[in-house]
Design a protein around this nucleic acid. Structure first.
Length: 371
DNA sequence: AATACGGGGGG
DNA sequence: CCCCCAGTATT
């Protein structure tokens, strides 16, 4: 084991001595050349295209990203068109992809590039990383792939590969571990072809060195892999246990008035920021979902409504909590909309919902709506 | 250093 | 159904 635990808790010996660097690089890149998937963002080095792909691929699997990537580039073929676009249009293309701050930050960053950098994406890792939504990983990935800068990308795939290759015991899900994985990745980086190398090691993590059931029998690196030799691949990467996620009971209402329904827009920041939804909120203790629906709609929109029927119950999991949402069909009774919480509202026909970006939890019941 | 922030896939 | 996965901004 390379990293010996010191007597002090949580301290890991950082004196990394990687062996066989040139061999590992050669085997890895050779494997990648022969086995890489054909992906649309690999057919170009255009920094904007690479950037789009990396923002989407953050926390998200290739299969999910593919259709979003194509659609996004059709609507916004270059940085200028993205900068000029309405945020709502950007969010609509992002609908269902999650982590909507990525879209908001990317849209802001595009405007910074147009205004501050003469519409040229910075060919400089430090400058590029100043942009909103561009952190260590995105900066390294885009700058290495598009411009050939020797920056190692250390995403989850890379950390898993490195943890196994060198039996690194630092937990991958602790922020304090990032430095160690990043510096290890930097040492292993083939700096004469950083873009190819970064993609190669990430591809290995995605296709071979998978979280569960790594395919060591067809891996190009088994003779270098310490975890594999110790028959302990399933013990790496180390991970500190997560916290239990609470479950909330939510009530939401589809308020009908003269053949239209009421939707509200969430504040621009925070959870699902800028997206539209059907009004509602948490069910309190000693309250049933129906009462909560009526109360929340009154609080958020000032409308008095009555519940006509129970439409459906939707379950949805977020990162750090999950919800059970009861959805009611409501009838408008009285009042004028005065917003308290939401940023905006619309009365729309149910077919018009497709023009607005909604959270996944709402998309689960929208098909049930009719005027 | 810990928390907020989606949604998909696998068992 | 529950569990696993994982970059960036914010606190």
């Amino acid at each position: 084991m390379i990293f010996d635990k010191h007597s002090k808790k949580g301290a890991w010996n950082p004196s990394l001595k990687i062996k066989n660097i040139p061999h590992i690089q050669e085997h890895l890149v050779h494997w990648y050349m022969k086995n890489q998937r054909q992906l649309p963002w690999r057919e170009t080095h255009d920094p904007y295209h690479v950037w789009v792909s990396e923002v989407m691929l953050q926390q998200t699997q290739v299969k999910t990203v593919l259709p979003y990537y194509e659609k996004f580039l059709r609507h916004f073929p270059d940085i200028t068109s993205l900068a000029q676009a309405d945020l709502q249009a950007v969010l609509k293309l992002w609908e269902g992809l999650g982590y909507y701050a990525r879209a908001r930050n990317f849209h802001r960053a595009a405007n910074v590039v147009v205004k501050e950098y003469n519409s040229k994406i910075p060919d400089d890792p430090g400058e590029f990383q100043k942009l909103p939504g561009v952190g260590d990983y995105i900066a390294s990935a885009v700058q290495s792939i598009a411009f050939g800068h020797p920056c190692a990308a250390a995403d989850g795939n890379v950390k898993r590969v490195l943890a196994r290759l060198f039996q690194i015991d630092a937990p991958v899900n602790k922020s304090a571990s990032h430095k160690l994985f990043k510096s290890t990745a930097d040492k292993l980086l083939a700096s004469d072809m950083p873009g190819t190398f970064n993609q190669a090691i990430m591809e290995l993590g995605a296709m071979i060195c998978k979280p569960k059931h790594p395919m060591c029998d067809i891996c190009p690196l088994p003779s270098f892999c310490l975890a594999h030799q110790a028959r302990k691949t399933d013990e790496y990467p180390r991970r500190t246990p997560g916290k239990p996620v609470p479950e909330y009971h939510i009530a939401a209402g589809v308020v009908y008035k003269e053949g239209q329904v009421l939707i509200t827009r969430r504040k621009p920041e925070g959870l699902l920021g800028g997206l539209w939804e059907f009004p509602g909120g948490k069910v309190r203790k000693n309250e049933d979902a129906k009462q909560a629906c009526i109360r929340e709609i009154k609080e958020e929109t000032n409308l008095v409504v009555e519940v006509e029927s129970h439409l459906t119950c939707v379950r949805h999991a977020y990162t750090h909590f999950k919800i059970v949402m009861d959805v009611f069909r409501c009838a408008y009774v009285s009042g004028r909309v005065k917003l308290n919480g939401p940023e905006d509202f619309r009365w729309i026909a149910t077919e018009e919902t497709e023009q607005y970006p909604f959270p996944k939890a709402n998309l689960k019941f929208i098909p049930l709506l009719k005027n």
